[in-house]
Computed example of a mutant assay.
Amino acid sequence: MDADLEHAADPEDLSRLIVVRLNTGDVEGLVALYESDAVLALPEDGVANGSEEIRGTFERLLEGRPVFEPGSHRPTLRAGKLALTSTRLPDGTVTVEVARQQDDGTWLWVIDQPAFIPPNT
Rank of each mutant, 00 (worst) to 15 (best):
E12S: 15
G50P: 12
I117W: 04
D13L: 08
P70N: 06
T93C: 06
L40C: 04
K81F: 02
R88Y: 08
T121Y: 08
E12G: 15
R16E: 12
R65C: 04
W107C: 05
G56T: 10
N49A: 14
P118C: 05
M1D: 12
F58W: 14
T95G: 05
H73L: 15
L5Y: 07
V31Y: 00
E59P: 02
E53W: 06
L77M: 11
A83G: 03
G105W: 08
D26I: 01
R16A: 13
D2Q: 08
L5G: 00
N23R: 03
T106H: 14
P75S: 07
L17R: 00
F68W: 09
G50V: 12
L77R: 12
I117L: 15
G105V: 11
H7W: 11
Y34M: 04
T121R: 14
L61D: 05
N49D: 14
F68K: 03
H73N: 13
V20C: 00
V27G: 07
E63L: 11
F116T: 09
D91V: 01
Q101V: 03
L89D: 07
A8N: 01
A83R: 01
Q102R: 11
L33R: 03
D104T: 01
Q102W: 02
S72A: 14
T93R: 13
V98T: 15
G46W: 05
E35M: 06
E35D: 12
I18Q: 09
N120H: 10
E35G: 09
A48H: 02
L33T: 07
N49P: 01
L17P: 01
D10R: 15
S86K: 08
A38V: 08
